[in-house]
Each structure stands twice: as structure tokens, then as C-alpha cells.
Design a protein around this nucleic acid. Structure first.
Lengths: 141, 141
DNA sequence: ATGCATCCTGTAGCCACTACAGGAACAAGG
DNA sequence: CCTTGTTCCTGTAGTGGCTACAGGATGCAT
């Protein structure tokens, strides 16, 4: 697993399934540390950066913002953080997600009900438009 | 309801609860038509623009993109669209929403389960970090 | 006349990327 | 050694949907 710790950016990209431009972007915004370079200026990565990048990717998949990822990495790096601190960040994130699910679920049921009433006829009787159009909604109430 | 069809942008903003800058932005990107102006160049809005803006706001609340809003408005404008066309846009949007809900629900359950295993002790045993960290996940499997 | 609210245009910033442009370096084949 | 093709570099601009200025003009009340 660590027999070749000298990867080019393209190899790292294929290995972690993260775009080359995204890797450079992560470096620019300071979430992935700047790696060392070859004589001609090309980036070379080792297993440490590979792990960090994979961590970032996984966190992003779980919907953490880059700010949150930075915080998690800072907790992990000095190895002096407690699980409770990690749990706080993750817990806030969980609340965010639950809020979004609740919002989307409301939208979903409204849209679903509305679309089901759709006739396919001309627009003046379209229930979707009715739901969107404030004038008609006010006339309803 | 139509006794004063000459609103300033500020009045329209308060009436529809849409930011002044957002109203100008909608005009710039062509989702709200450019209104007439006073002699000195100030925008004046009537009841038609008010309805359109309220329609946009409501659509945005339901998560439609501005592109979708444009499409819906174009369907409504010439009054030659069928309910079926509206339903198609809304149906695609509904599928989007359902996909997002499904994704978020998976994340939610993973995060929830993980956080519950959290001890509060030092980071090396933190299950949240474990879930995020690929090295440890691979060691698991 | 003065002061304050409101309006105008135009530009830059937010997030997390993505997509170029224009150039330099590397590896393989002839 | 030369060419060709791939990879890499930096820097800039674009995405969506706004929001936040800067710097100036206008409108209204006193």
C-alpha cells in the first residue's frame, strides 16, 4: 500500500477520484496542504496527502462544507481533540440535513398532490399554475 | 386591489417580500420584464409585474430554478400551453426533489447511527472520524 | 435650503467548483 | 535529435442566485 509514495497530480486524481482542478483548488483554499515539487515545479504527493484527500472527498460526499472539513482536519491533526468536538460538528450538520429533508418532503407532497390533479388540458385550468399563481391562490381563499 | 397600479421598486419589494436588489437582478437576467420608467429614470411597476414577481417568488420557494421559472412563464404568457407541458416541468422537478430526499435520508441515517456511537473520549476512537477516514474504513473491511 | 430616504448603475463577493488559455516539460517512437 | 502526444503549470473567468457595496442622482418633508 505504501510502496510508491510519489504520485503525480494525475495519478492522485485517478486514485482518489477527485478532479485535478479540484485538487489544485483545495490546495489554493488551504484545505489540502501544499505538496512538495519536482525540480521542474510539478507537484508530488505521498500517502499522507492521499489519505487527507480521500478524507476530504468522503466528507464532501456526506455534505460537509469545506469549512467543516477544515475544522475536522484541524481536530484530527494535532490529535488532541476529543470525540465530543467531532460529534458537535457532525451533530450540527445532521440537524442541517434533517431540516432540509423536512423542507423537501413538504415540497414533495405539495407538488405531488398538485401534479396528480393535472388534466392535460389548456393552461387556464392547470392546477400547477394555480398553486404557483398568487392571484388565483388568493381568489381561492 | 388595483386602485394603485404605480409602485416604486421599494413598494413592490415590501409588497412581494422580495429584495430590491433581487428584483433588479431578475430584470437583468430576463425573468422579470423591464418595467416603464419615470422621467427621471425610476422604475414603475403595475399589477401585472406584481403578479409575475409573486409567481417567481412562489416558484423559487418551491425550489424551481430560474430557468424553470422562465419556462413556466413562457408557457403561461402566450396562453397556448397545455397543462401537460406544465406538468412535465413540474414532474421533472418533483423527481429531482425525490432524488435529493433519498440522498439526504441515506446520509442522515449514516450520520445518525455514527454519532450515536460517539463516546466523547479522545479522537483515535471516534466513530465519526472512522466513517470519514478511508484508511480506517479499509482496515475495517 | 437642508437633510434624509430612496433610487440609479456598475462592480465585486459568496460557495465549490469547472473550464478554459497559453505555455512548459516529459516520455516514447522514428 | 526531433517530433508528437500527454501531462503538467499558472492565472483568469464562468456557473447559480443572489447580496453588498460604492458613488452618485433624485424626491419629499420641513
Amino acid at each position: 500500500m505504501r510502496e510508491r509514495p510519489t504520485l503525480s497530480i494525475g495519478e492522485l486524481s485517478r486514485l482518489t477520484d477527485v478532479n485535478i482542478e479540484t485538487i489544485r483548488y483545495y490546495e489554493k483554499v488551504g484545505v489540502l496542504p501544499a505538496p512538495s515539487r519536482t525540480g521542474s515545479g510539478r507537484r508530488i504527493y505521498g500517502s499522507r496527502e492521499t489519505r487527507t484527500l480521500a478524507f476530504i472527498r468522503r466528507s464532501r460526499e456526506l455534505g460537509f462544507t469545506l469549512d467543516e472539513v477544515r475544522a475536522l482536519l484541524n481536530l484530527g491533526a494535532p490529535a488532541n481533540a476529543t470525540c465530543a468536538q467531532v460529534r458537535e460538528i457532525a451533530g450540527r450538520h445532521l440537524k442541517d440535513i434533517q431540516g432540509k429533508i423536512a423542507d423537501l418532503t413538504k415540497l414533495e407532497s405539495l407538488l405531488n398532490k398538485t401534479i396528480k390533479r393535472c388534466s392535460g388540458r389548456a393552461v387556464p385550468e392547470c392546477p400547477v399554475i394555480d398553486v404557483l399563481d398568487v392571484r388565483r391562490r388568493n381568489a381561492d381563499a
